[in-house]
Design a binder for these strands. Structure first.
Length: 407
RNA sequence: CGGGGCGUAGUAUAGAGGCAGUAUGCAUGCUUUGGGAGCAUGAGGCCCGAGUUCAAUUCUCGGCGCCCCGACCA
């Protein structure tokens, strides 16, 4: 993509109303735009990152049997009354509104009710189970205090998967698979080494749950790391002895066993092989994509800007032209065509601005690799390839360049 | 929801009861061109309402908005 097609611009100054590193860098780099407290729009660069994250999650969910669909955002209050979660005294962060011709509706803040209700139409036999539907969608929570940039918003994009199993044993088996899938996701997103499987409270759902906590000073939660090797921890809220290293962390994902808490009120049951009626055993598995994106920025950026891991970077390579010479521009244009035709996602900075500005912008935006085409390129016939993370610079031939960027 | 802070140009900031300044960004011209260049010219601004006052962007009150700490976080 040509850089000017992005239409966004980088900024030197941090916005005054953002203190968190994630929002500061993402706004300066042109990834997000703040609409109001806790609500952000995703600009072309930011949306590309979200889509990369989404694709990683989709692949991992499909790998464990997940089936993607999408539940509605506007929710009928009747189904929430069934589970007892419509009342403001029970859930205080609902966004509710009313229909023109009467009747209240709510904006979805989670999906348990929607899925439990919907599946009563399709689940009737043990042969119909287990199933693992999931969706990506925007969720609304009327937070009394949104904070920390995109880490805790009022509107956010998330993935929620629900498991519907025949019994506890079948549920446990899937639960373990989901744990591993989550580990894969955070590894691929580049924050695996900082992310701990953390035992936590189950809230109103169950006694315990598991959170995936990424260690960073920006974290809201306090955890005790109980096993550095296995990447395990316990949340302070349920810790008793307080053994282990204390750390601040961001909850990037969580998984819950729900038991029959929802299948019971919705009558989500099936006829087993013995012709007896049994309740479906459920689990829920969530990840906030914006929060994950913000966490990556918090953990991996440096003093010059963002450092995106390859799998979530908006582009694979940033091609930078640093000459006004027509021959050199033609060379860069040609290289851009070659790269894109080989399927290498390239952001091409052909703007008529000085080299220093392009380099600074490139550091801020944080694309993993950079190719610089200038006078030296014509002389040496080699392309300068620079790694954003290490700063290492090498001169390589066209074949090596493509080979490397393909990997 | 309790406490604290803050609203001045696209962005970041200074300022005073009486012509609102600087930087950056933007436009134009010239000079520059491998790490956010230089000079010149130009466009662009005091959150909203009420009160006090001859005069309010400035003081007072109310509203709205934003940030931080805490509470909450299915």
């Amino acid at each position: 993509m040509l850089q000017r097609r992005l239409f966004t611009k980088t900024r030197k100054e941090a916005p005054k109303d953002e203190v968190s590193k994630n929002a500061e860098l993402l706004i300066r780099g042109g990834f997000i735009h703040k609409e109001m407290a806790g609500v952000y729009s995703f600009l072309p660069l930011g949306l590309r990152v979200i889509k990369k994250i989404e694709e990683i999650i989709r692949e991992e969910m499909n790998a464990i049997g997940g089936t993607e669909m999408r539940t509605a955002v506007l929710q009928n209050k009747e189904i929430w009354e069934k589970s007892g979660r419509w009342d403001d005294a029970v859930v205080d962060n609902w966004f509710k509104t009313s229909l023109k011709n009467g009747g209240e509706i709510g904006l979805s803040f989670t999906n348990e009710e929607a899925y439990s209700n919907l599946l009563t139409q399709y689940i009737s036999s043990y042969k119909d189970l287990p199933v693992y539907p999931y969706d990506f969608k925007n969720i609304f929570r009327n937070e009394t205090r949104s904070k920390s940039g995109i880490l805790r918003g009022r509107e956010f994009y998330w993935k929620a998967l629900y498991s519907f199993s025949r019994d506890d044993a079948e549920h446990e088996e899937f639960y373990e698979k989901a744990k591993q899938a989550y580990k894969n996701i955070f590894n691929r997103a580049g924050i695996g080494e900082y992310t701990y499987l953390t035992r936590a409270s189950g809230g109103s759902f169950s006694e315990f749950s598991h959170e995936f906590q990424t260690v960073t000073e920006a974290g809201e939660d306090t955890i005790y790391i109980t096993d550095e090797e296995k990447k395990e921890a316990i949340n302070k809220e349920i810790a008793k002895g307080n053994e282990g290293r204390e750390a601040q962390a961001i909850e990037v994902g969580n998984i819950f066993s729900l038991g029959t808490k929802f299948s019971e009120p919705f009558g989500l049951a099936y006829n087993d092989a013995d012709s007896k009626k049994k309740l479906v055993v459920m689990g829920s598995y969530g990840i906030g994509l914006g929060r994950l994106m913000g966490t990556i920025v918090e953990v991996l950026s440096d003093e010059r800007g963002i450092v995106w891991p390859r799998e979530v970077a908006p582009f694979r390579v940033h091609l930078i032209l640093v000459s006004e010479d027509k021959k050199i521009r033609a060379l860069a244009d040609e290289l851009y065509k070659t790269l894109t035709s080989r399927g290498i996602e390239t952001l091409y900075d052909d703007r008529d601005v000085r080299a220093g500005e392009k380099f600074a912008d490139s550091d801020l935006i944080g694309i993993p690799s950079r190719i610089i085409v200038g006078n030296k390129t014509i002389e040496s016939k080699l392309y300068e390839l620079k790694d954003r993370e290490s700063g290492e610079m090498r001169e390589v031939s066209l074949e090596h360049l493509i080979e490397e960027l393909k990997s």
